[in-house]
Design a protein around this nucleic acid. Structure first.
Lengths: 344, 344
DNA sequence: AAGATTTTCGAAAACGTTTACCTTAAATGT
DNA sequence: ACATTTAAGGTAAACGTTTTCGAAAATCTT
C-alpha cells in the first residue's frame, strides 16, 4: 500500500550528487550551478518529491504554521458570525504569505489536557492569534506573556500587538444617528459586562447620551448574552412592558436584534413604524432581509487581514516590528429598522 | 529573549539517566521502574518540558494532524453556514481523539502553488476530510485517489468512506409536506446542477411529484447559485411574473429563501398567507425569526462527528475499517412559511 | 604559467524523538 | 551454590532536513 515517500536521499542517488547539493539546489542557493539545479529539479519533479514539514521544522525551528485561539461565550467556535469572518480573512492573508493555520483551543477533558501554551510549543507555532471573550483566563494570560509572537483581536495587552474594532466610535455614531432621527428614549440591551468589547460600547453609549444631553432611566439598560435570540427577546419584552417604554432599542449584536424583532412583532407592532431597533456587527443576513437592519458593520475583512499581516511581520522581524494597538473603524449602515420620530 | 526549549536531553542530564530512559518513562513503557518514572515526570514538569511535534512526527510518521479541505462555490470558506457547522463538529470530535486540524485549501497564486496532495504530504497529515462542491477538480481527484486516509462529505467515491446528507429523503419529505398542505403549483429554485447535492435533490423533487401525481410546468424550475440572496430574489420575481405563478416556492437553501421573501414582500404580498416558501439546511436564523422557515434541518453535528470518527478509525486501523457510505437523514422543520391551501 | 580568485560541490553534524537490541544486576529456581 | 529468568536501563541508529566548513576544480590575472 504505502508508496515510499521520496526524500532528498532518493534524488541525490538518482542524480549522483550529495544530499546537501540537492537541498541547496531545491532551495536555490547560489553555490550550485545552473545546470545541476535544473537537473535536480527535474528529477525531483519526476520522482514526485515533496519536502517534509516535520524535518524542516525540526531543523530550522520554523513551522510555517500559525496557531489560532478562538473562544467565545457559547463556544460556538467556527459558527460564530463575527469570528468566522475575521478568521476567514486572517486565513486568506496568512496563506498568501505561506503559512498554514491550526487551531489551539480544543478538548480539555481527556488526557491531552495541554494548556494553550503547551499546545503552541508542542506544535512549534511561529506565531499565535488570539480572539477570545475571556481574556482573564490564566491560560490565555500565560500564552500572551510567553515569548511566542502574538497578536490579539478586540482586546489589548501591555507590549503586545492588538487589532481592535472601534467600539467607541461605532457606538457613538449609532447613538448619534438614532438621536438625529428624533429618538430620545433609547434603550440598550448589551452583552456581558466583563468583556472589553461590552465595556467600550457601554461607556461610549453613556458618554454620547451625555454629550447629547439625553438622560435615560436605569431600566433602559439590560443585559443579555451575545448572539442569544431568546434572551434578547425576553429582555425586549421587559422593555415593552415598561410604563414608559423606549422608542428605540439597541442590541448587543444583529442576532439579538432579531430576537427583539420577534418580541415586537408578536405584539402586533411593526419595525420601524412602531418601534425602532438597531443591531451591531453587520452580518450578511441582517443587511439583506427587510427591514434592513440599522447596524454598525464591523470591518472583519480588514481586522483579519491586518492581524495576519502584523503577526507575520512580528514573526519575520521581531525587533523591527512596531508594537501597536490598531483600531479599525466600523461603518454605520443606516438600514431601515430605525424610523424617524417627529418632535414638536 | 528566546528561552531555550527544554528537550529530553535536558531532563536526562538533570536526572542522570539516558535519553532513552526519559523517553520511555514519559511514554509509560513497562521497562522503567515506577520510581524513576515518577522522578523523571517530576523533573519534566518542573523544567517545563513539552514534546516536540515535529521530531515526533519525523520519527513516528504520525503527525496527529488532520487536513481539512473545504471549498464552496463562492469561496466563502469558513463563513459558510452549513460547512462551518459541519467543520465545527468535526473539529470537536477530532480534538477529543487527540488530533489537531489544519486547512489544506489556500492561496494558489504565489510560489506556494502546491497541489492539495502535495500540501497533505508536506504536512504529513494522518488523514484528510474533504467537503467540496467541485469534486470534479482533478486535484481533488488526485487527493482522493492517493493513499492518504480520506473521508468525503456529501459526495461518494469508489472505495472511499463518505458521509452524505440524505437529500433524497429530505426533498421527498419537504415536497410531500407541501403537497399535504394543499399545494400543487410548486416551483423549485435549485442550485447549480453539476453538484451531487443538487442532482439528488432535483431527482427526488421530480420523483416525488410524479409519485404524487403532480405535474408542473418547466418554467417552475429555475437555477440560482447557492446562498445567493440577490439571484434568488431575481428568480423569484420571474416566477411571480408568470401568468400562472406557483403557490409555493422551494429554494436551494435558507439564504436563498430569504431572498425570495424579499421579492415577495416587495410586492406587498405576505408569507405564508399569499405565497408559501421553504428553504433547506435549517440554519439557526431561519429557525428563529418569524415567520419561522419551513426547511429541512441538516444534522450537521452528526455529519461532522461521524466524519471525524470514521476517519480516525481509518487512520488507526486501515485494514479493519469498513469502507462505507453513511447517509444521514435530515428532519423536516415545519415552521410557518408554508401555508394551507383549501382545495375544492 | 603560477598564483589568486571564484565556482561548485561534498562531509558531517545537528535538530528532538523513538525503538530494536544489548548489558547488567538482582531475583528466582533447583 | 549454581544456572536461569526477570527487571531496569543504556547504546546507537534512524527519521529528513539544513548548514557550516572545507576541498577540489575551474576561471581569471598578470
Amino acid at each position: 500500500m504505502a508508496k515510499r515517500i521520496v526524500s532528498l536521499k532518493d534524488i541525490s542517488k538518482a542524480c549522483g550528487v550529495s544530499i546537501a547539493t540537492v537541498s541547496k539546489a531545491l532551495n536555490d542557493h547560489s553555490d550550485i550551478s545552473k545546470d545541476t539545479k535544473e537537473k535536480i529539479r527535474e528529477v525531483a519533479e519526476q520522482l514526485g518529491y515533496h519536502p517534509n514539514a516535520a524535518a524542516q521544522a525540526l531543523k530550522t525551528n520554523r513551522s510555517n504554521n500559525i496557531g489560532v485561539l478562538f473562544v467565545d461565550e457559547a463556544n460556538s467556535g467556527l459558527t460564530h458570525d463575527y469570528f468566522s469572518h475575521v478568521l476567514d480573512s486572517f486565513k486568506k492573508k496568512a496563506e498568501q504569505e505561506g503559512f498554514d493555520i491550526t487551531f489551539i483551543n480544543g478538548d480539555r477533558t481527556r488526557n491531552n489536557n495541554m494548556s494553550y501554551l503547551s499546545h503552541a510549543i508542542y506544535r512549534g507555532f511561529d506565531g499565535v492569534v488570539i480572539a477570545c471573550v475571556d481574556f482573564s483566563d490564566p491560560e490565555v494570560d500565560e500564552l500572551i506573556k510567553s515569548n511566542i509572537p502574538v497578536v490579539t483581536i478586540d482586546h489589548s495587552f501591555f507590549n503586545r500587538i492588538s487589532i481592535v474594532s472601534d467600539n467607541i466610535k461605532g457606538m457613538r455614531e449609532l447613538v448619534t444617528y438614532v438621536y438625529e432621527q428624533g429618538h430620545r428614549k433609547i434603550a440598550y440591551i448589551h452583552g456581558h459586562e466583563d468583556t472589553a468589547v461590552t465595556q467600550s460600547r457601554l461607556a461610549s453609549f453613556h458618554k454620547t447620551l451625555q454629550d447629547l444631553g439625553v438622560t435615560i432611566p436605569d431600566e433602559y439598560l439590560l443585559e443579555a448574552p451575545y448572539r442569544n435570540i431568546e434572551e434578547a427577546k425576553k429582555a425586549t419584552d421587559k422593555l415593552l412592558d415598561l410604563k414608559n417604554p423606549p422608542t428605540c432599542i439597541l442590541y448587543s449584536d444583529d442576532f439579538a436584534a432579531f430576537g427583539g424583532m420577534n418580541a415586537i412583532r408578536e405584539r402586533g407592532l411593526r419595525v420601524p413604524n412602531d418601534i425602532s431597533i438597531a443591531g451591531y456587527d453587520g452580518i450578511e443576513i441582517a443587511r439583506r432581509i427587510s427591514p434592513l437592519m440599522t447596524t454598525i458593520v464591523q470591518d472583519t475583512d480588514r481586522i483579519g487581514r491586518l492581524a495576519a499581516s502584523k503577526l507575520i511581520d512580528l514573526i519575520n522581524n521581531p525587533k523591527a516590528t512596531l508594537i501597536e494597538q490598531i483600531v479599525i473603524p466600523g461603518t454605520l449602515e443606516k438600514g431601515e429598522s430605525v424610523g424617524k420620530i417627529k418632535r414638536k
